Simulated scan of single mutants.
Amino acid sequence: MYFTCPICNKNLYYTNSNCSVACENGHCFDFAKEGYLYLLPPNKKHSKDPGDDKEMVAARRRFLAGGHYQLFSDALNTLAAKLLNIQSPILVDAGCGEGYYTERLAQSLQSAGKAMSFFGCDISKSAVRMAAKAAPDVSFAVASSFSLPLPDACADLLVDVFAPVVPEEFCRIVKPGGYFILAVPSAKHLFGLKEILYDAPYENEEKDTDYTGFQFTERVPVRGALHLTGRDVQDLFSMTPYFWKTPKEGSKKLEAVSELTTEIGFDFLVYKRETT
């Protein structure tokens, strides 16, 4: 067992039944029927059921399964394969959500003959449950990115796709010489959506951010366009931060829309863990 105890940080071991894991201090955690572990202690929860709820997770799964963001997934897969020039890499997806990028990255690396070990964590139980069903070859846990239940210097690559960035924790997890890929929105990402939601739509801020312990190596831009109809429009809205931030007037405007055309864009920022 590669996960560590979220209470005392000791190694976890399979119990005799293989239906649960425990540490030397007696903290025990059962596997869910989908195969994931719940490693989020009560004192690290900010609400009763933190993270995306079932409806938001389902909307994201429908939207992503439609292939609307496949160009970003393909670019991530290509970039990861380029960085991982070892045979048996260890990967971590911090804030994996419902597992779309995790699943496709695992499949891509397996097709390339990589004997990888892949771990996904998200604070949403609903998201992790769906991810575990979709990607059975990946080890998933409900856990916070602010306290990942993984040992020090364990990952050759850590991936963060629109999830909280926790520099100190990511620096702890990634091996010296390993990599951290961060996906951020381009300036015009979803600008067409914001033109409907807001009277004064704004572009996203683009900046290079330094993180202690990491050296920035490159920015990989990926651009495209979307034309959506019907339910896809609302599903896209439901999986964005604008779902929480938009006033009711903007949401009502979108409800009246049956089609949406917008620019989309990710930038993948690549950081290398310093060796000293």
Rank of each mutant, 00 (worst) to 15 (best):
residue 145 S to N: 15
residue 146 F to R: 13
residue 130 M to R: 13
residue 152 D to L: 11
residue 161 V to L: 10
residue 163 A to I: 00
residue 160 D to Q: 13
residue 139 S to N: 13
residue 160 D to T: 14
residue 160 D to S: 15
residue 180 F to G: 05
residue 177 G to L: 01
residue 142 V to T: 03
residue 136 P to L: 14
residue 178 G to E: 01
residue 180 F to Y: 14
residue 141 A to R: 02
residue 131 A to H: 03
residue 179 Y to S: 09
residue 138 V to D: 05
residue 144 S to L: 03
residue 147 S to Y: 13
residue 138 V to H: 01
residue 152 D to P: 12
residue 148 L to V: 11
residue 141 A to P: 04
residue 144 S to Y: 06
residue 126 S to K: 12
residue 171 C to V: 08
residue 153 A to D: 12
residue 136 P to V: 12
residue 138 V to I: 11
residue 163 A to M: 03
residue 151 P to R: 01
residue 133 K to Q: 15
residue 154 C to D: 04
residue 128 V to A: 06
residue 171 C to D: 09
residue 126 S to N: 15
residue 143 A to K: 05
residue 167 P to C: 06
residue 124 S to W: 02
residue 169 E to K: 05
residue 144 S to Q: 07
residue 141 A to N: 02
residue 151 P to D: 01
residue 137 D to V: 13
residue 147 S to F: 13
residue 182 L to W: 08
residue 146 F to W: 15
residue 146 F to M: 13
residue 175 K to E: 05
residue 134 A to V: 07
residue 158 L to N: 08
residue 161 V to F: 08
residue 143 A to S: 11
residue 168 E to F: 14
residue 128 V to Q: 03
residue 136 P to M: 14
residue 165 V to F: 12
residue 156 D to V: 05
residue 157 L to T: 00
residue 130 M to T: 13
residue 150 L to M: 09
residue 130 M to V: 15
residue 134 A to Q: 10
residue 175 K to V: 00
residue 124 S to C: 05
residue 175 K to C: 07
residue 154 C to F: 11
residue 158 L to M: 14
residue 160 D to K: 12
residue 131 A to Y: 01
residue 146 F to A: 15
residue 145 S to G: 15
residue 126 S to H: 14
residue 144 S to T: 05
residue 174 V to E: 05
residue 167 P to N: 04
residue 170 F to H: 09
residue 180 F to Q: 07
residue 150 L to S: 00
residue 175 K to R: 07
residue 125 K to T: 04
residue 131 A to G: 00
residue 140 F to W: 00
residue 156 D to K: 09
residue 140 F to L: 06
residue 169 E to M: 06
